[in-house]
């Protein structure tokens, strides 16, 4: 995405744009979920913490970031295995955390 547009200094790429769109979609999905199925009240899960749905999303995203960092530091490419681990981790967090 080269060029002289106002945004060229931000050096956008399709993969990074897709990443931020994914984060934005997560927020939208959480809002829609809460609107149609309220139930984000705090609860105590396996981590021993009182969490809301938003907390569980935060824990999932932050934990996933560290899964990718750990994989890159210890193993390297490809990134499909850490992606699978991150998805499983996020599901577990939403279900049990």
């Amino acid at each position: 995405m080269e060029g002289t547009s106002l945004l060229s200094w931000m050096a956008w790429t399709w993969p990074t744009a897709a990443f931020f769109v994914f984060i934005l979609l997560c927020f939208v999905a959480m809002t829609v979920w809460e609107y149609f199925s309220p139930g984000g009240d705090p609860r105590r899960g396996v981590l021993g913490l009182t969490t809301t749905r938003g907390d569980r999303l935060f824990i999932s995203l932050l934990g996933s970031a560290f899964v990718f960092l750990a994989w890159l530091g210890l193993v390297g490419l490809p990134l499909w295995p850490p992606l699978a681990i991150a998805i499983v981790y996020a599901i577990l967090m939403f279900r049990f955390a």
Binding site: E2, M10, A11, T13, F19
Partner: peptide, 14 residues
């Protein structure tokens, strides 16, 4: 985040 996956030698070329 955008910079972290690219290399640049300046002049807004990545």
């Amino acid at each position: 985040v955008n910079f972290s996956v690219q290399e640049t030698f300046g002049d807004n070329v990545f």
